[in-house]
Amino acid sequence: MKLATVSVKEKEFVVIINGEQMVSIETINQTEGKEWRTDLFGLIQENHLSELNRWYRSEGEHKLSSFPIVGPDDIQYVAPYKSPGKILGVGMNYVEKAIELSGQLPQEEPVIFMKPNSSLIGPDEFIKLPPQSSEVTAEAELSIIIGKTCKDVAEEDAIDVVAGFTTSLDVTAKDIHAKNPRYMQRAKSFDTFFSFGPYFITPDEFPVLKDISVETVLNGEGCHQNIVENMMYQPWWIVSFFSQIMTLNAGDIIMTGTPGSAVIRDGDIVECRIPGFKPLYNPVSKFKAK
């Protein structure tokens, strides 16, 4: 099942993407007599997403073709939700990228980091280049959305705690990080340095995760591309790993690593492209002090 959060006349709500059509959860509630949350964060947190997906798989997919639709000309895609509990990341996860950056594969455990909620933006919003940095990079990544509170999850059980996947862009002040690896947290924490959306897709749409392709695109030209099979740490392993460090909560986001980064400058447009998802676009501008 594919979902997105859209804005129509400044009202935000969730739609199901059904082929070329979009149907709001509000319309489904009215037509089917349901009381599902109409925001994605609420759908995930209150476990309405599981109920909605069961309905969609059993009967809803066929029914939606006769429901009133949201006109594509009327909508603007926005961030799936605004305030996740945690935004977590894994660095240097593709074999080729790790060797390129360090000359060797990392030992036993991945490089990890966190981003603040203040770094979060959605599709088509501007990535703002901070004055403290002269070299900023953006990286396309497949991100995991946690579906329920969990701790110490076994790798084989990780799929049971995942709500879905989305496209994302991880932005880094590369020159700051290059001064000292211990500056990584600062380099990744500036406002607008994390974007995700527009599509959110449930795991049942991806029976074979290893074939998912992730591509960083700059100004319409592909820069780096790779497939999940070439990750050193696979998605279900990553969920298990983080859950053994900290409690994961519904709505937490985990970036799984990038096939490669692109240096971004004022006026650029950077994208994350993953087949099955609508591409995530973000324009780039210089930071302007208020």
Results as ranks from 00 to 15, higher is better:
residue 194 F to C: 13
residue 159 I to N: 13
residue 182 R to D: 13
residue 182 R to L: 15
residue 150 C to P: 08
residue 164 G to P: 03
residue 151 K to Q: 10
residue 178 A to H: 05
residue 151 K to W: 02
residue 199 Y to E: 09
residue 168 S to W: 06
residue 146 I to D: 05
residue 148 K to G: 07
residue 166 T to A: 06
residue 170 D to I: 07
residue 179 K to M: 13
residue 187 A to D: 05
residue 196 F to I: 12
residue 189 S to H: 15
residue 180 N to Q: 03
residue 177 H to I: 04
residue 178 A to F: 06
residue 154 A to K: 14
residue 190 F to C: 01
residue 142 L to W: 05
residue 160 D to A: 15
residue 169 L to N: 08
residue 176 I to S: 09
residue 156 E to M: 10
residue 152 D to C: 12
residue 159 I to V: 15
residue 171 V to Q: 09
residue 190 F to L: 02
residue 168 S to A: 15
residue 151 K to P: 04
residue 184 M to A: 14
residue 155 E to G: 00
residue 164 G to K: 00
residue 173 A to Y: 02
residue 159 I to Q: 13
residue 180 N to T: 01
residue 162 V to E: 04
residue 184 M to K: 10
residue 158 A to T: 06
residue 152 D to M: 12
residue 168 S to D: 08
residue 190 F to G: 00
residue 162 V to Y: 03
residue 175 D to P: 00
residue 199 Y to K: 00
residue 170 D to L: 05
residue 197 G to Q: 04
residue 174 K to Q: 07
residue 161 V to K: 08
residue 165 F to I: 08
residue 154 A to Q: 14
residue 170 D to Y: 06
residue 174 K to Y: 04
residue 166 T to N: 02
residue 160 D to V: 09
residue 152 D to P: 08
residue 178 A to G: 00
residue 167 T to I: 05
residue 194 F to P: 06
residue 186 R to Q: 14
residue 164 G to H: 02
residue 167 T to L: 13
residue 174 K to E: 07
residue 197 G to D: 02
residue 143 S to W: 00
residue 145 I to N: 04
